[in-house]
Design a protein around this nucleic acid. Structure first.
Lengths: 330, 330
DNA sequence: CGATCGACTGGAACCGCTTCCAGAACGGAT
DNA sequence: ATCCGTTCTGGAAGCGGTTCCAGTCGATCG
């Protein structure tokens, strides 16, 4: 493995000069530059990243921080991120934080340790203090699926999405609409479900329909819990004719539950999900679509721009409803 | 950020001693050790990884090398890997190689550059030469879903799996059984499909049934291609009564295609897939199940053992058929 | 024509760790 | 008391980069 000293010797220049041509920001005489470049190529020299990091006090890598990998939506976004970084040749490190402790630990490791060049946060809210730490450590950050103050964020409007889904059901004649969502039992601060419920309530209110607390069920995130909550909803005296689930994963639980009660979708109960994950078309689930993979790619591209010193704005993504076969007119 | 020198000064010892207590392999007087440990704790000292890597010529990180992230099975295995490393606190870096060039480039970066402590290879065959390079660079390696000579591997027997699926169909009276698989158009050397086909042929031969070339269709991996190949299969004069697909992804393409031809599953055509991915239960696909997530966890555990200096053997995983609703008796 | 200036360059110092070597301290054997 | 062998310890050297400072060298200016 050739070192910078080998290159310097071979090219008959000093190490400082080699360093300068590698990093190319300072002025070096064209002839010298050419000579050094030739030697670098000939020796197949590649700078030692550890030495570089030690000297500069930071890494070249990109860190991706996610709350969990098992979530279909987080996973799809991650795929987009990785795809976008593929050609950049940068090292991508993955950190999973599914409790506040793990999150704090991850952040501590990032600002106090590995100091990556960039950080991509997927779906995980971060406190102002944390964001300030990141800024102080000069870790360029981009957020995906979560709006972080002062950080370029790739997001959709969940309230509008909730409204969209609910309005879709209202337009098809439904009035008794249930909501199945999750509450943030981990304390990580997820807002999607809450915001989508807000949209649901607004859409109802827009038609003068008040909130019916018994129609709103929440619990820990997951298909099984959604299944259980749906059973409660369906055993109500006036059971809803439609259910809006805060995510597709939960919608799948709803579908199972409806079937388990001996009811039919969409004849007896209509269902709308959110995210339009890969499974949705297979199940025929009508869902609010957000571009998951795309959001990852866009976030990664934004980070690359940021690292290039460009100004980067928030990237709003739009929501559409994908009609399949889990909703019928009323 | 405290350095090892701060700790040494504060504890009234030399840096060598501090290093020794941190790495704990050499003998240090108990009293000294205690004092140093106390100071480390008080100053919240954490060794600088870059300095450590530079000095030792290798990294503490674990690298996971995958052919692509979008494959449901690779993804599930990756989830298992990440899950298993979560508590270890090690940095996990991800490398995607979906062409031979990218693979070679990734290996070059690993052995000549980042020198991770360990490498986990998922589903990607590696040449003997590459494996020798890895060994020379002292990168402990574990393979998942691919048998690499001289490397502890977590695998299933694909030939047996192909046999299992085919025999299942045979037992239910099918004789005209088609096979849909993929060929390795990227040149990455994937063997799963080929091996599963081998198992299919063996099972047929065991009953004295010869191979019928027109019943065997292969093409690039993917749902769409499987869809197309299935159409060819179904337009045969004596169309098969059952189809064994080399993967669930392809089986989904088969299912779509059958429906598109106006035929019914399983009445007109039975279908068996392979992998039992997350989607399979939703679609009711009968499939050969292999523990995907589990394989990731086991591979990661094996690597951790290897890093601890333990002897590690190959881990064979078993296959079972999961009966759902895409196969009927004949 | 000497002074001045800017462009370019060499190389020492430094980043924070590991490792090796030599020396200190101590107990036991002679 | 001397010597030797252990055990423990301090600190210099080295890992391979970046960066800053001082120096060289033409060209330009007065």
């Amino acid at each position: 493995m050739a070192t910078i000293l080998d290159v310097a010797r071979e090219a008959g220049v000093g190490v400082g000069t080699v360093s300068r041509v590698i990093n190319g920001r300072e002025r070096v005489a064209p002839a010298t530059r050419a000579r050094v470049l030739e030697v670098i190529d000939r020796l197949a020299y590649a700078p030692n990243q550890s030495a570089r990091s030690l000297s500069m006090g930071r890494t070249d890598a990109i860190c991706v921080l996610v709350p969990f990998l098992t979530s279909a939506s987080v996973n799809a976004r991650l795929q987009g991120v990785v795809e976008a970084f593929r050609s950049s040749g940068r090292e991508v490190t993955l950190r999973v934080a599914d409790t506040p402790e793990q999150r704090d630990q991850a952040i501590a490791a990032i600002v106090g340790g590995s100091k990556p060049a960039g950080l991509i946060v997927i779906s995980l809210p971060l406190s102002e203090i944390t964001i300030a730490e990141l800024r102080a450590a000069e870790v360029s950050t981009v957020a995906i699926d979560v709006a972080l103050p002062g950080v370029p964020s790739v997001t959709v409007d969940d309230v509008a999405g909730g409204k969209l889904a609910t309005k879709y059901l209202l337009d098809r004649g439904h009035r008794a609409i249930g909501f199945i969502g999750d509450d943030d039992e981990q304390g990580l601060g997820f807002r999607s479900s809450t915001n989508r419920r807000l949209g649901y309530l607004q859409a109802m209110a827009d038609l003068g329909l008040g909130a019916r607390p018994e129609y709103i069920k929440t619990g820990p995130f997951g298909r099984e819990v959604a299944h259980r909550l749906t059973r409660e909803l369906l055993s109500l005296e006036n059971r809803p004719t439609a259910i809006f689930a805060a995510s597709d994963t939960q919608a799948f639980g709803v579908l199972e539950s409806v079937a388990a009660q001996g009811l039919a979708v969409p004849e007896d109960v209509s269902v709308v999900g959110f995210d339009d994950v890969e499974l949705a078309p297979y199940v025929g689930l009508t869902s609010v679509r957000q571009p998951l993979f795309e959001s990852g790619k866009l976030g990664a591209a934004a980070l690359l721009d940021l690292l290039d010193g460009a100004e980067v704005d928030d990237v709003p993504l739009s929501l559409t409803i994908v009609e399949r076969s889990t909703v019928s007119d009323r």
